[in-house]
């Protein structure tokens, strides 16, 4: 696993780790929208600047952050060529029936930049925010919906447990694939139908293990007094600090400027 996968949190004590999850999630949303909403280069500069600053503050290793771009590699690839070949404008090159344009080149590059920024922002959020904090933040942001009957806390619990087991399942997939390879399956060669069939020895054990884990976890949670009911309290109460206020203001200001400037 050479990626900072979504859900991969890295415990550290940086300014970005300490921010309130609601602020971070709000800011992340703003930073994901900004590259799409901005019309003027200054808007994009602000977006890149903020993401860059956040990356520095998070002290995430740059190699790991660049690694996250792999998650959007294929999507970027197709987006680029789609825009590259379909955008009308000044001709750059004509080969046979295919004509490419300067505008196409720019539009393709713009899509790639947007996707990359999206990936980095998502990675920074999960890297600096523990799964439980993400859940708390999400619950806090969704809490108005609890009044119309949405089981927000239960959803939060489901999310917490799911995120907790993401790394476990990735490790398990690795281990099971290796173990089956040790039994003679070659998972990465043969015709496509063969390869699909070869995933059965990996996914059946993974699925069974997931069921077993879920059963055991349910017993353990029950033994620890978990019930689906609203009387739970929290170790962390979300409280906004001055740093949160400053961060929120900076993102808000940059976002507003970035969107409004034409």
């Amino acid at each position: 696993m050479n990626l900072l996968l979504p859900g991969m949190y890295f415990a550290a004590d940086t300014a970005l780790h300490r921010l309130d999850p609601r602020v971070k999630m709000g800011a992340a949303m703003a930073l994901m929208v900004l590259p799409f909403a901005a019309r003027h280069p200054i808007g994009h500069l602000l977006a890149v600047g903020l993401v860059g600053a956040a990356a520095v503050l998070s002290r995430a290793p740059w190699r790991a952050l660049l690694g996250t771009l792999r998650t959007v590699f294929w999507l970027s690839f197709f987006m680029f060529f789609f825009y590259f070949f379909t955008t009308p404008g000044r001709p750059l090159l004509a080969l046979g029936g295919v004509r490419v344009t300067v505008e196409g080149l720019l539009a393709g590059a713009l899509q790639v930049y947007r996707l990359c920024l999206l990936a980095v922002v998502a990675a920074l959020l999960t890297y600096t925010t523990s799964p439980l904090q993400l859940t708390h933040g999400l619950e806090a942001m969704l809490s108005p919906l609890a009044r119309i009957g949405l089981p927000v806390r239960e959803l939060g619990m489901v999310l917490t447990v799911a995120l907790r087991f993401v790394p476990t399942f990735f490790e398990e997939i690795e281990t099971i694939s290796r173990a089956q390879r040790a039994r003679g399956v070659d998972l990465s060669s043969g015709p496509p139908w063969q390869r699909i069939r070869n995933t059965v020895p990996v996914f059946v054990p993974l699925f069974l293990s997931a069921i077993r884990r879920a059963e055991e976890l349910a017993v353990a949670m029950e033994a620890r007094g978990f019930r689906s009911q609203p009387h739970r309290t929290r170790l962390y109460q979300l409280t906004l600090t001055r740093a949160d206020a400053i961060a929120a203001l900076i993102v808000l200001a940059c976002g507003t400027i970035g969107v409004l400037i034409r």
Binding site: T175, I176, R178, A179, Q180, A182, R183, G184, V185, D186, V200, P201, V204, P205, L208, S209
Partner: peptide, 27 residues
């Protein structure tokens, strides 16, 4: 080289003991 991983029963997936043991030889 035959390698039995830790808790090797966690890799079982077949519907009968025969098929499970035959999995390697079949390959």
């Amino acid at each position: 080289v035959g390698l039995a991983f830790q808790f090797p029963e966690a890799q079982m997936f077949e519907v009968t003991v025969f098929r499970e043991v035959a999995f390697g030889p079949r390959h």
